[in-house]
Design a protein around this nucleic acid. Structure first.
Length: 430
RNA sequence: GGAGAGGUGGCUGAGUGGUCGAAAGCAGCGGUUUGCUAAACCGUCGUAGGCCUUUAAAGUCUACCGGGGGUUCGAAUCCCCCCCUCUCCGCCA
């Protein structure tokens, strides 16, 4: 959510910077509503002040034995007037808040201006794509051939965009989760948390998924008899939601900052509107696993912490010996809540291209303002900055390993760093 | 799911429908005292929003005592619904 005072005093600047995201935003309407809202509030509150003052007189009059019926009637009339005014305030306020909460974050000044993913800017590259003396296969062929990945039965069990892992496939996925968590907790200073995988709508609002992106989420139903009614429980689309909301409506002590947390969770996404994209393989599934990094920082430290967080995610790929590049997303490609985002893209031989495996963002105070996460600054409080990034997406790392470490005979070499977790050096057909 | 108890400011904890935004204590902050620490004493100390103001501060008003609705001139206090916590019972990994 935008800082209202800043919005009022820097309207033109904010409008110009938001325009770089592309699309049009109802900023003029928001400014107009802001004025209407304030006028309505002032009017209603003046009436309330009058009513309160009159009401207090009744107490005094009654004690002195005076008759108050006439005064009571007069106050009741004010009360009716207030009721009408309050309805106005409520109507304006509701539209105002809905509009305001839909305004995306203002891009940081270092974010390149652009329209689409084509305008993202590569900032570094690590490792070189492996050279094969044979035609490398994509994981959707390799996996089933190795007997570690089964799409047919997953479709039977559930439907499209789900996967069933067998044997070494399942163990590889589990090994990656442990390797990620161990690396971040032992070497990068994160504290591990294990949050609920179901959250309420307040949490989703806090991190910005609601109200705008309900269609991307799975919501749980409750049935009583023949009635099916929605609950306020939603499957998490990312650990960002429960972990960031850990401190919702709390004030943190400044000496505790930055707080660095990491969490393993499954993630559930309806992927509405993505039909036809990444339909093959496990790149885009309704359910996947992820280890997420989340930080709460002082505002002045957040960009240094974003660099560290991004480096912590990259370090996993370095340790696994996987080639990757890091790009900074342009204004037109960034998520609405983010002020600046780095995507880490791993090399996938099956696609002959780099593919996003982590997205590291600084939300500045955008989420903190929505979620009420503050820290103490002397006598006052201020909003923290929140950051997060995948460290990493487990399924896509699984794909990267299988595709990059594949051999001519169809087996897959296990990267050194994972061998303590798998107790195997090669994945081959059983 | 059933029965009971309870949800008040950072924490503990009072509160009779009428200056209750709310006693008291602790913690915090400022100060006095002190060689330093501690103790003692004095003061200060919620959040959000509106108005005023060059921003802020100050001032003033409004709202907030788990959430929502209701009764009343007036609700932390009375009524209804919901949520959460605790104890016991049932079911269950």
């Amino acid at each position: 959510m935008l800082d209202l005072a800043f919005f009022r005093s820097h309207f033109d600047e904010i409008a110009a910077r938001l325009a770089t995201r592309g699309g049009s935003l109802p900023l003029e309407r928001l400014r107009e509503l802001d004025g209407k809202r304030r006028a309505a509030i002032t009017e209603a509150e003046q009436l309330k002040a009058r009513k309160n003052a009159e009401s207090q007189k009744i107490g005094q009059l009654k004690r002195s034995g005076a008759d108050t019926t006439e005064l009571q009637a007069a106050i009741r009339a004010i009360g009716d007037e207030i009721g009408a005014r309050d309805k106005e305030v409520e109507a304006v306020d509701e539209e105002f808040r809905l509009l305001l909460s839909g305004i995306p974050n203002v891009p940081h000044e270092t974010v390149p201006v652009g329209r689409s993913a084509d305008d993202n800017v590569e900032v570094r590259r690590h490792g070189a794509p492996p050279a094969f003396d044979f035609e490398p296969k994509a994981h959707w062929d390799l996996g089933p051939e190795l007997g570690i990945l089964d799409f047919d039965r997953a479709a039977k069990l559930t439907g499209a965009r789900f996967a069933l892992y067998w044997g070494m496939g399942a163990r590889l996925e589990r090994a990656l989760v442990n390797f990620f968590l161990d690396t971040h907790t032992r070497h990068h200073g994160y504290t591990e948390v294990l949050p609920p995988f179901i959250v309420n709508s307040d949490s989703l609002y806090g991190t910005g998924q609601l109200p705008k992106f309900a269609q991307d989420l799975f919501r749980l139903d409750k049935r009583s008899g023949d009635e099916i009614e929605p609950t306020d429980y939603w499957l998490i689309p990312t650990a960002e939601v429960p972990v960031t909301n850990i401190y919702r409506d709390e004030t943190l002590e400044p000496e505790r900052l930055p707080v660095s947390l990491c969490a393993y969770t499954p993630c559930f996404r309806s992927e509405a509107g993505s039909y036809g994209r990444d339909v093959r393989g496990i790149i885009r599934q309704h359910q996947f696993q992820k280890v997420e990094l989340v930080k709460f920082t002082r505002p002045e430290d957040s960009y240094a912490e974003l660099d560290k967080l991004t480096a912590d995610a990259e370090d996993i790929l370095v340790r696994l010996g996987l080639p990757f590049r890091t790009v900074v997303l342009c204004t037109g490609d960034m998520g609405p809540s983010s002020a600046k985002t780095y995507d880490i893209e791993v090399w996938l031989p099956g696609q002959n291209n780099y593919k996003e495996i982590s997205s590291c963002s600084n939300f500045e105070a955008y989420q903190a303002r929505r979620a009420g996460i503050r820290y103490r600054t002397g006598k006052k409080t201020d909003y923290v900055h929140t950051l997060n990034g995948s460290g990493l997406a487990v399924g896509r790392t699984w794909v990267a390993i299988v595709e990059n470490y594949q051999q001519k005979d169809g087996s897959v070499v296990v990267p050194e760093a994972l061998r303590p977790y798998l107790n195997e050096e090669v994945i081959r057909k059983p």
